[in-house]
Design a protein around this nucleic acid. Structure first.
Lengths: 255, 255
DNA sequence: CGATACGTTGATCCATTTCAAGATTGGTGG
DNA sequence: CCACCAATCTTGAAATGGATCAACGTATCG
């Protein structure tokens, strides 16, 4: 472990607009984190409806946004290290969903009082915080699209590739996969299908040589093949360098 | 038509946090609108991937967020009067979806340069603008839930009740329905199903006496019955007075 | 009055759910 | 180190929601 310059916030907006942060802003951002905490797998970190006094930065591990509706459980989004998982709680005050640790997790937190002061003092950094909440919204829109458009096998592939890209931004993916604690049940809840069906879908994708999932590890033999299969295009993730992608999109739109 | 105090922005956050705006802020907000424009039905107001220089406030009519993926067309959200339809473009710069007029529409616009100045000068108003983009995200999450959880008939009912509530906030709904220009095709694209199937679903709901749709008009004989049918709970819309709802949720969570 | 967009209906096929049972795995105490 | 337990994963068979293809009805408007 190399001692990093900004040990807590170095992953925030990495691969996105981190380059838009000045050195002063990086210092300021790091100073926002008033404390850190370890959380056990499965723990509900923020409960739906509770009035939020602070916001949470995910430092290590995976988190899901979960809505429990009586019998059924649904996942409306995943968060990876470097994500502020409930920055929207700063303006919304109370969340419409639970925030749950998918495996063992480490988090940092920032009081809303501190964020309120920041808004008056650092408009540009504020705008980047705003941007980060809009990234979540863009991902939400893609999930809506995915659920409207794709079959279960493509949905799964889509979720997996999205996670790979997001982990790749923060240098937690390797060229052919990544580690993650999510179970088949979790993937089913995120794909809007049942664990029985997700199990068959996983097998089908394995047999096609597109994807392997098991024992906390995802292996993707051919990134391009899987992306094609899932009709995945990463522009909605607003990664650095995505402007080229958009140019391509424009070209296609004209055609 | 009564001459209103803030003719352009009087609907912004109405039924939500408009009461949190001071009189000065309301004046400032109104001054943001640098021009207005009428748009014909079906017109693409903002195209995916284009670099945005301004943001758009919907003054009158309905707008959809549309993603065209080759053959298929998908709607990832609707906007009603009083909504800033592309405020996220201020921070994201380019949108991941098209913004399309569902019927004849009137819009106002604000340059991003003006918004940038505002961020330094009016942090509290900025925070409310931020809030309004987070409302969209909350609605996105509910759509994800809806698509993961519900069958086509309940999805349709859910979309309709959501629109009723949002129109009710801005006083454009009446106790038993509202007017809207969306076609069966549009509703199908928003529910992730086909127009053939949405047609059957509309008939089934009509035969059950839950919902009538036709000729630009939605009629809801019994709001409570339809809400129960769609498993609809309006707390995610963050309407004024929703705190009671949340208290109920907490009570349920404990039970 | 004919064109065009929108809505309606029927028949067939397939993806997915549901229910039920069994296999595998990892962890824990004896 | 083994035996056992609980969680997770796997498989089968029957039932169903929804897609698809194809055709026909019906508004509406120049």
């Amino acid at each position: 472990m190399v001692a990093s310059e900004f040990p807590l916030t170095r992953l925030f907006l990495r691969g996105r607009l981190r380059h838009a942060l000045t050195e002063d802003e990086k210092v300021l951002l790091e100073s926002l984190i008033e404390g850190t905490r370890r959380v056990a797998a499965g723990e509900v970190i923020i409960r739906r409806g509770a009035v939020a006094q602070q916001s949470t930065l995910l430092l290590d591990g995976f988190i899901a946004r979960v809505i429990n509706d009586g019998a059924s459980r649904h996942i409306v989004g995943f968060q990876v290290p470097g994500d502020y998982v409930d920055l929207h709680g700063f303006a919304l005050k109370r969340l419409d969903h639970d925030v749950v640790a998918m495996g063992p997790v480490q988090i940092g937190y920032t009081s809303h009082a501190r964020l309120e002061r920041l808004m008056g003092e650092a408009p540009h950094l504020t705008r980047l915080l705003w941007f980060s909440t809009l990234l979540d919204a863009a991902i939400h829109r893609e999930w809506i699209l995915k659920l409207e458009e794709l079959k279960a096998d493509q949905r799964l592939a889509h979720v997996i590739i999205e996670l790979w890209h997001r982990l790749n931004f923060v240098e937690l993916a390797d060229p052919h996969g990544f580690n993650m604690p999510m179970l088949q049940t979790d993937l089913a809840d995120a794909c809007g299908t049942t664990s029985v069906h997700i199990n068959r879908v996983i097998r089908a994708l394995r047999e096609r040589g597109l994807l392997e999932i098991g024992r906390g590890r995802v292996t993707i033999p051919g990134m391009a093949e899987l992306a094609r299969y899932a009709a995945f295009s990463p522009d909605y993730l607003y990664g650095t360098g995505a402007l080229q992608v958009v140019t391509e999109l424009d070209a296609n739109a004209d055609a």
